[in-house]
Structure formats: structure tokens, C-alpha cells
Write a protein that binds this DNA or RNA. Structure first.
Length: 263
DNA sequence: TGTGATGTTGAATG
DNA sequence: GCATTCAACATCAC
């Protein structure tokens, strides 16, 4: 689920619900869910503190504490934040929860446990260490086009490479390729400046529109590829047949003939 | 029933 | 260095 717009929406909810509230308790159900410190260290660090800010780069979002430490919420494939007052509303796969003075509980729900939850002293230092690329919403054209230079892999693989551009996952990569009318298996380094300009513009546009709609795909624009990107594979009127293939190990949908293969 | 696929990523391999 | 594959985990659809 979570690519940049989904993470941005989760972060918005976090800001609206818990910013400024004092943390009164921490409950950890799964010992491995906090990856870099023990459950005791995590609890001690958070108790009686407040989140005062958030930060996001790509799919990585941080809650910043009032002592400048930060908690990374990297949601993996199935991570989500759930807010409740009544213990009966606890999500099914809650791995840990934070209790606030107001009685509100923030539950961290994660079925598949691919998430990365870290307690960090310096979030920007951490981002440097993992070499995360510039955020896909704000990357400028020069940086964007540079990451394609000399690359022999596919267009889609570069779009999804978090060290090149942070925030694009499987679904939005397909959407960008479709709207750019470029085949996702096009050779990245073979794309012309006009292709790259179009890709850069669409990346911003698509992710921004998705963020504006709070990643609620039911209200995505009608002309998006989104609704055809499923297994009831058919024909898009006047464009071509919807096909499926593996690119970079990921299931990829595209419209044959409509999306030009540059190589 | 077993098999393969699922939005994430990092580590291992070629 | 770069590109690709697999593993981490739990569930679901066929």
C-alpha cells in the first residue's frame, strides 16, 4: 500500500492526531518491531515526551520528539497507524502502541512486519547514511534527469530506485509510464531530454494529485491508468490492450502499442 | 490441498 | 560499480 502519497496521508493523520500530546505509555507486543533499540530503551525515550514535528522524504516519515530525537515510521508493505480510545478498536495486527495523556491510543498495525521502526538521534544523518535520493515531489529537473544518465536498466527500475528518486513504488511507476506513453522496460539511459522532461512533470503532477486526494484511489481522475491496472485485462478504447509482465521482479501493467519502447 | 502472488527494502549474487 | 534475485513475513486467490 504505502508509496509517497499514502505515506504523506499517514503523516497528515499523525500530525492532526498526536502532535503536541504528551506520551503517557508505550506498549510493545512484538520484540522485533523496533529494530535498533530494546523495548525498554524505546519506552524510556518516548515516555513523557511529545511529538512536535514531522518530516518526510520519499516513503520515510519521522515523528520528531521535543528533544530532537525522532522515530522513523517506515511502513514496509502493510504498515499503518490507527487511532482509537476504546481498546476494542485495537487493530488486528497491532505491533506496538503509544498512549497519550488525553486517552488517545496510536496503534501501529502491520500484518507482514516488513516495516522499519527506529529510534534516531539525528534523522538527517540517518537519511545520509542510507543514501536516500531526493523526494519525488520536489526533485528538480536537473537532478531528475541526471539519475537516468548512463543507466542500462529499465525506466521503471530507475523510477523505483529509492537512492535515485525517493517515493515512487510499483503502482505509481506504472501510472507515470502510462501517462508518459513510455514502455516501462525502456532503457533508462536511452531516454531523450523531452522524454525526461515529460517524466519529471508527470511525476510531480501524479504524486501531487494523489496527495491532494489523500491517496484515496476511488477519487483519482478518470483518465488515470489506475482502474485498468488489474487482472480483468482488457482493451482501453482507442489505445490498445492492457498487458502484464515482470520488470525488475515486479508485476508491471502497460498498454501495448500505446507506450513506446525506447532503447 | 499446494503454489504463487502481494504496494516494502536490503543483502547476496552475477 | 551496477543490475538482478531472493529473503524477510503473513495472508489470500486460484
Amino acid at each position: 500500500m504505502p508509496e509517497l502519497p499514502e505515506v504523506n496521508t499517514v503523516m497528515k493523520g499523525f500530525r492532526e492526531n498526536v502532535l503536541g500530546l504528551k506520551i503517557s505509555g508505550v506498549v510493545i507486543h512484538d520484540d522485533k518491531i523496533i529494530r535498533n533499540v530494546s523495548r525498554e530503551e524505546f519506552s524510556t525515550a518516548l515516555k513523557r515526551r511529545k511529538f512536535v514535528d514531522t518530516y518526510r522524504q520519499g516513503k520515510y516519515f519521522f515523528g520528531v520528539l521535543d528533544n530532537d530525537q525522532a522515530v522513523l515510521f517506515h511502513l514496509g508493505m502493510t504498515g499503518d497507524l490507527v487511532y482509537y480510545f476504546d481498546g476494542n478498536d485495537k487493530p488486528k495486527y497491532e505491533r506496538f502502541s503509544l498512549q497519550f495523556d488525553s486517552g488517545l491510543v496510536l496503534g501501529y498495525d502491520d500484518l507482514r512486519k516488513f516495516s522499519n521502526i527506529l529510534l534516531l538521534d539525528d534523522l538527517h544523518k540517518y537519511l545520509g547514511e542510507i543514501g536516500l535520493g531526493p523526494d519525488a515531489l520536489t526533485i528538480n529537473y536537473r537532478d531528475f534527469s541526471q539519475v537516468f544518465e548512463g543507466r542500462t536498466t529499465t525506466l521503471k527500475s530507475v523510477l523505483m530506485d529509492q537512492q535515485s528518486i525517493a517515493g515512487i513504488g510499483n503502482l505509481y511507476a506504472d501510472e507515470i509510464c502510462y501517462q508518459a506513453r513510455l514502455h516501462p522496460a525502456s532503457v533508462a539511459g536511452a531516454l531523450s531530454p523531452s522524454h525526461l522532461k515529460k517524466l519529471h512533470r508527470l511525476t510531480h503532477q501524479i504524486l501531487q494529485e494523489a496527495c491532494d486526494r489523500d491517496a484515496y484511489y476511488k477519487i483519482y481522475p478518470d483518465n488515470w491508468f489506475w482502474k485498468w491496472r488489474n487482472d480483468s485485462i482488457g482493451e482501453i478504447q482507442g489505445k490498445g490492450e492492457v498487458k502484464k509482465m515482470k520488470i525488475g521482479g515486479r508485476t508491471t501493467y502497460f498498454v501495448e502499442g500505446y507506450q513506446v519502447w525506447v532503447h
